[in-house]
Simulated assay, not measured.
Amino acid sequence: MKKLGLFLIILIYTMTFASCSEDNVPTYQGDETENKIHIGVSFDSFVIERWQRDRDVFVYTAEELGAEVNVQNANGDVEKQISQIEYFIDKKMDVIVIIAVDSKACGEVVDKAKAAGIKIVAYDRLLITSDADLYISFDNEKVGTLMAQTIKDNVPEEGNIITIFGPTTDYNVQLVEQGYREVMEDANLNVIYSVNAVNWLAEEAYDAVNEALLISPQIDGVFCGNDNLATEAVRALSENRMAGSVVVTGQDADLAACQRIVEGTQTMTVYKPVDKLAKAAAEYAVKLAKGENIDVKTTINDGIWDVPYVKLEPIGVNKDNMDEVIIEGGFQNREDVYLNIPD
């Protein structure tokens, strides 16, 4: 009987201890998960080199601030992006950050997210008629003026130029074109070929240069909407033994573009400090999730609503200020930029 009594005491003690452990552990983990800020990010794609950098800086900053980030890649597919946003809504994200495939296509799903109490950040590209809680980007009109000014200053009077803009579905492209037109309004230059590259497909720049050459053998300048397009434009020029004698512009300060600039086959690029943009976006996203005042005074009209707008300044980069802006600024390494330049 004594042995039986001792066994029952041990059994009761063990069951009681186990019960306490099971109650405590899930409760602690559940509270930790519930208190964590959840941010969903839907990228247009990672075709453009800079987006990978934006992603890495954003995720690192947000996680340092205690948030959990779920990154999705729409691969340039509008319907896929809408589906990703709906998934974020179902997962009850606190904030959804959108790099729009099509600036006009997300209105309905954004309305659904906002009705669920989710904050919306339009990253780099404005969401049209969507009443986002924040739009953070660069001064894209100035991007266009910087590139256009390079064409105007370096192409001779009555010279022939090609313009290769980004897709019409990207609202930033409209702003870039606006900046371009303001500069070129009084320029005495001939636009012999113009195209908008669908989904930023770089191959369209290669085709554009070759199509223009069928119109005229003389090309003096190529306005490229980004450095990826410039890569293919320069390839076409190289095949026709024209690289280095034609003014070529771009934006994003991709490594390949920086290399071409110091080598002399691309004239300039527009540097947009994406590290600063991504870091600021993550900080604002966390503030929005916490219900804090973001204190943004500048606004931009999305077609209906005035949206708080954080606007960063772009910088034109050529051979003369490459070291100062890109290398000393830590955006690219000197040995990489000057890889093909003999010591």
Score class of each variant (00 low, 15 high):
residue 25 V to L: 09
residue 39 I to E: 00
residue 28 Y to W: 05
residue 10 I to V: 07
residue 43 F to V: 02
residue 40 G to S: 04
residue 41 V to E: 03
residue 16 T to H: 08
residue 23 D to Y: 13
residue 34 E to I: 01
residue 25 V to W: 08
residue 33 T to H: 13
residue 18 A to N: 14
residue 13 Y to M: 14
residue 43 F to L: 05
residue 33 T to P: 05
residue 37 I to C: 07
residue 36 K to I: 00
residue 42 S to Y: 06
residue 26 P to N: 08
residue 34 E to W: 01
residue 15 M to G: 11
residue 11 L to A: 08
residue 14 T to Q: 14
residue 11 L to R: 13
residue 39 I to G: 05
residue 35 N to S: 07
residue 41 V to F: 04
residue 42 S to T: 08
residue 37 I to E: 03
residue 23 D to L: 13
residue 36 K to R: 12
residue 36 K to W: 02
residue 38 H to E: 07
residue 31 D to S: 10
residue 42 S to P: 08
residue 20 C to M: 15
residue 23 D to A: 12
residue 42 S to G: 10
residue 27 T to F: 08
residue 10 I to A: 11
residue 27 T to Q: 11
residue 25 V to G: 07
residue 32 E to K: 12
residue 41 V to C: 04
residue 29 Q to R: 07
residue 19 S to A: 12
residue 42 S to E: 01
residue 18 A to V: 05
residue 24 N to M: 10
residue 28 Y to L: 04
residue 18 A to C: 07
residue 21 S to H: 14
residue 40 G to H: 00
residue 29 Q to N: 02
residue 9 I to T: 06
residue 44 D to T: 06
residue 44 D to R: 12
residue 44 D to I: 00
residue 32 E to R: 11
residue 30 G to M: 10
residue 43 F to H: 02
residue 42 S to I: 09
residue 22 E to W: 14
residue 11 L to F: 06
residue 39 I to A: 06
residue 16 T to K: 10
